[in-house]
Amino acid sequence: MPNSTEITKKAADHPEGAERMRSGQFFRPNCDIVERDDELLLLADVPGARSDQIDVKFENGTLSIHARVERRQAPETEYLLCEYAVGDYWRTFQVSEAVDASKISAEYANGVLTLHLPKAESLKPRKIAVTST
């Protein structure tokens, strides 16, 4: 079986000012984003990371996700087949909706990070009752 060089993860360059990690390479996690009436729901695949290794930041309308992942094999390991690389995840989003930053919550289970970004009160849909006179 030949060594495969095809890597199925997308690379992400680290942004200016960010600390360079040991591998020097970040991967861009796959994300699903769903807009609900009262919140934005974001799911990110970060397999291999522990919950205490995940950093989520929201600053000036920019949401950043950083998950550290420990190496699972020694660096000199020879693979029979290697279709993905192991490394940290990094991804940033510009959030155009007004989000209530103080109420952002996150859960982590089975390698998937779930973020709830509640919309600010002023943007939630409101039903205005029409009264007849």
Binding site: D45, L80, N110
Partner: peptide
């Protein structure tokens, strides 16, 4: 799913990244 396979001395080690899957 993508896989990685390592041939060690006493075993073959296989890993698959399956985020969000109920084991």
């Amino acid at each position: 799913p993508p896989v990685e396979i390592v041939d060690s001395d006493d075993a073959i080690l296989i890993r698959l990244e399956l985020p969000g899957v109920d084991p």
